[in-house]
Simulated assay, not measured.
Amino acid sequence: MADLVFLTEISFCKFFKRNFNKSFTNYLNEFRIRKSCQLLRQTNKKLLDIAEECGYENMSFFHRQFKKYIKKTPSEYRISFL
Rank of each mutant, 00 (worst) to 15 (best):
A2W: 00
D3G: 12
D3N: 13
D3L: 12
F6V: 03
L7H: 01
E9I: 00
I10A: 10
S11W: 00
K17E: 10
N19I: 07
N19F: 09
F20R: 08
N21S: 10
S23V: 09
T25N: 15
N26G: 05
N26C: 10
N29L: 15
N29H: 12
N29E: 14
E30N: 04
F31H: 15
I33H: 10
I33E: 13
R34P: 07
R34V: 11
K35C: 15
S36R: 14
S36E: 10
S36F: 15
L39R: 11
L40D: 03
Q42K: 15
T43L: 01
T43D: 04
N44Y: 07
N44M: 05
K46R: 15
L47M: 07
L48F: 13
L48T: 11
I50W: 08
A51R: 09
E52N: 07
C54A: 06
C54Y: 11
G55E: 06
G55R: 12
G55F: 06
E57S: 10
N58K: 08
M59S: 14
M59Q: 15
S60A: 06
F62A: 02
F62D: 11
H63D: 11
R64K: 12
F66D: 04
K67V: 02
K68S: 06
Y69T: 05
Y69N: 04
K72T: 03
K72R: 11
T73A: 00
P74Y: 08
P74C: 04
P74M: 01
S75C: 09
E76F: 05
E76G: 07
I79K: 09
S80A: 03
